[in-house]
Design a binder for these strands. Structure first.
Lengths: 186, 186
DNA sequence: CTTTTATGTAAGTAACTGCTTACATAACCG
DNA sequence: CGGTTATGTAAGCAGTTACTTACATAAAAG
């Protein structure tokens, strides 16, 4: 691994554990096993390094890579719900960084977050209108419910409580959510 | 207002806008209109002040104060959903502080968060088992869906996007969520 | 009136932080 | 070989930060 990569990785880890202001450049360089001078030579400033981390570890490509499952009805929602949940889990550190920068939101962090929600809703929008047969308006609201629930669940259970839920708990939740959203008039 | 109160209020505001590490004690004391020495005399340390802010502005009493509505069915869920949403909004700053401290979670912040979720689930548990007629297990999972969706929705739309949703949007969401959760087998 | 209490001003300290400069070294490239 | 490139060490600087000490003052309490 190049020095650049090692620094990026170390920065990712540090920022996600202690936030932007809680992390020092000394700390990052030590964790990366390089000198602090190298860090500044390669990235110019702490802020710039932070930006690169945000780009490098973004969850957005992961979400884009999720394929819309064939078929229809509840089963499809369960499938996509699980895929999304485990994508969130895989990028937990990235999401922690995002959350911790909610205060003093710089435009760029805000933009990253907006694109994250857009990407999610776009994917779910496609799934919902193909798998369930819903009007544009119905679909949009249900997508919001589904997306919010999944995201809220992940944040509460995994990020804040700092644990990793057993598979059955995740399944139970996603099934319940999918059933709720795919049934009824809501 | 006493100096103590002014400092608490200023600290609350600063921490919610810039996080713990992003805020300096100088800043707080200036915002409070007192000298920095006074801040340290009254609170001992920055950390202690932070703790007091967390206690003083906690959302938990707000949630405890919400009365379980009479009646049954979907209407009740809508009622409680709206009450909860507007409680979250009223304590947005507190929640921002909580979110921003998700990195480097101290035990105390983690505990505050746990109690927050417990309080929420307890309230919703009572509502769900009285208003809908559900078994213990069904109720518990539906409560999780309801709670996660509401919380996730609030965080995405209001905290991260930094805006205040128009009332109709909130209503539409809560109605859709309530319908989804109260109908079906989920 | 005198003491206590609450607050202020001034000054400063020790540690830390982001970042820079100067110089060495070792590997790789033509 | 000679030069470029990537990295390291050492030193440090200027600014900031949490927090302290010493002393003044004015109001409140007894």
């Amino acid at each position: 691994m190049t020095a650049r990569e090692r620094i990026l990785e170390a920065a990712y880890s540090c920022f996600s554990r202690k936030g932007y202001f809680g992390t020092t450049t000394r700390e990052i360089s030590q964790a990366a096993g390089v000198s602090e001078v190298t860090l500044f030579r390669l990235f110019g400033s702490k802020k710039e390094l932070f930006r690169e981390v945000l780009i490098n570890y973004s969850i957005i490509p992961d979400i884009r890579a999720i394929s819309v499952p064939e078929g229809s009805g509840e089963e499809v929602l369960i499938d996509i719900g699980l895929k999304l949940f485990f994508s969130l889990r895989e990028k937990k550190e990235f999401l922690k960084i995002l959350l911790s920068e909610v205060t003093g939101l710089t435009e760029e962090v805000e933009e990253v977050y907006s694109r994250f929600v857009e990407t999610l809703e776009e994917l779910l929008g496609r799934v919902f209108s193909s798998a369930l047969s819903l009007s544009e308006g119905e679909s949009r609201t249900k997508v919001k419910v589904f997306r919010s629930a999944l995201f809220g669940f992940f944040i509460s259970e995994e990020v804040f409580q700092g644990r990793e839920l057993p598979y059955e708990d995740v399944i139970r939740f996603v099934k319940s959510l999918s059933a709720a959203v795919s049934g009824g008039r809501g």
